[in-house]
């Protein structure tokens, strides 16, 4: 769409939306948020970009194909699931690593990796759908 207002706001909003999606993602464990909501907002950013500048430009800034994002998302889910295997616990048991860095406590966990997976899957899925709709005909030859 050719509109000066849309183009300018989209450029400004992109950074805000992506940052906000990451904020929502990390906020997710104890407060409302998490991988799914974060992923939706992140996908929203790229959708906006696709509306303003077209799918070709969006593919360029996204760099990876959305379906590849889904694949990496699934891979993260699998990894978070098999981490407890190394301590002999069942699939998907939550493993936690507490660290003290600069006086503040940082929690690393296998559910975090799971959430990253959800985030990637949601972004990948929605962007793939938006691309398919925007490009009208199914992207048979753009799977690379």
């Amino acid at each position: 769409m050719k509109s000066l207002i849309l183009h300018t706001t989209t450029r400004l909003m992109m950074a805000v939306l992506v940052l906000f999606s990451i904020f929502l993602f990390f906020r997710g464990h104890d407060e409302p948020g998490g991988g799914f909501i974060g992923g939706l907002v992140g996908a929203g950013a790229f959708t906006l970009y696709a509306i303003a500048f077209g799918t070709e430009a969006t593919r360029k800034i996204l760099k990876v194909h959305p379906i590849t994002l889904i694949a990496y998302g699934l891979l993260s889910l699998v990894i978070s699931g098999i981490i407890p295997f190394f301590t002999g616990e069942p699939f998907l048991t939550g493993k936690w690593l507490m660290m003290e860095i600069g006086g503040s406590e940082i929690k690393l966990s296998s559910p975090l990796i799971f959430d990253i997976g959800v985030f990637l899957c949601v972004v990948g899925f929605i962007v793939a759908v938006i691309f398919a709709l925007e490009e009208e005909e199914l992207p048979a030859n753009t799977n690379h």
Binding site: I67, T68, I70, A71, Y72, L74, L75, L77, V78, G81, I82, F91, N143, H144
Partner: peptide, 16 residues
């Protein structure tokens, strides 16, 4: 359950 999931993921990564 896990093996088909991993296989599906790998097949998706090498889909070209």
């Amino acid at each position: 359950i896990l093996i088909p999931l991993v296989t599906a993921t790998l097949a998706l990564l090498f889909r070209t």
